[in-house]
Computed example of a mutant assay.
Amino acid sequence: MPADDDHESHSSEASSDDGHFVQEILARNDAWATRMSTANPALFARNAKGQSPHVLWIGCSDSRVGEFCIDLLPGSVFVHRNIANLMPYGDLSSLSVVQFAVETLRVRHIVVCGHYDCGGAAAALGTKSLGVLDHWLKHLRDVRAEHKDELAAIKDPKSRLNRLVELNVVAQVHHVRRMGPVVEALKQGRISVYGMVYDVSSGHIKPLEVPQDTNELDYLLYSDDEDFKH
């Protein structure tokens, strides 16, 4: 078959696949919307008037995990997800999400949820170069380096990986609590921050005991000199 004909054949197949995909998505969406409106007749009308979520969910981009595991309705959870549920200080996306959620939406709860069998955490435990992803994972490697003795003492690879997942959640909870909008909300007593881990093998989440951030006071900022003196 001539090259041009071969190209046209592949293009036709791709277009057909695209059409089937779109039709499937539309059919699934229609079925979902029908189920939701049947079970909650006022839901979509209420959401059309605006959002007032009470939870900010910070999770991993992994396709197996997400805020769906807490079974809340659309409009209840404001969501931010990225690889390995990291909250770096200089990441404008993360900072913007937190500021909007805390100051504008005025969420009452922030959940940082990692998950076992995390590919980002596994990569951070290894030494293979992954290109641009390496820059992002340096934040997770910082957590690994801070706890290298504890992690090295864990002989089972899976247990070591899952422990890094937990340590990373703790670190990101501390990062969130150090962000300006969260610091202010915490001082006002109107927000709580939690660390959790999702188990991909069972579908259950568990809360983590997050130790006190011994450096928390170093991140407090004051609005005037009088407050600073205190």
Rank of each mutant, 00 (worst) to 15 (best):
P2F: 13
A3L: 12
A3W: 06
D4W: 07
D6G: 07
D6I: 06
D6L: 11
E8A: 14
E8M: 13
S9E: 13
S9H: 07
H10V: 12
H10Y: 09
H10D: 13
S12D: 11
S12I: 07
S12V: 06
E13T: 05
A14W: 06
S15V: 14
S15G: 13
S15P: 07
S16I: 12
D17V: 08
D17K: 07
D18L: 09
D18N: 06
G19D: 12
G19Q: 12
V22K: 10
V22W: 07
E24K: 12
I25P: 06
I25V: 13
R28Y: 12
R28K: 15
N29E: 09
D30V: 10
D30S: 15
A31T: 13
A31Q: 14
W32H: 15
W32M: 14
W32P: 05
A33N: 11
T34L: 10
T34P: 05
R35F: 09
R35P: 12
S37W: 08
S37D: 08
S37Q: 10
A39F: 08
A39C: 14
N40C: 11
P41M: 11
P41N: 11
F44W: 08
R46C: 03
N47T: 01
A48L: 02
A48S: 07
K49S: 01
S52L: 04
S52P: 02
P53H: 05
H54C: 06
H54G: 09
H54D: 07
V55Q: 01
W57F: 10
W57I: 09
G59Y: 06
C60R: 02
C60I: 04
D62Q: 10
S63K: 04
S63F: 10
R64V: 07
E67F: 04
F68G: 11
C69G: 10
C69F: 10
I70D: 01
I70H: 05
D71A: 05
D71R: 10
D71V: 04
D71T: 13
L72T: 05
P74E: 03
G75S: 03
G75P: 00
S76F: 04
S76I: 05
V77I: 06
F78R: 01
V79K: 03
V79G: 03
V79S: 02
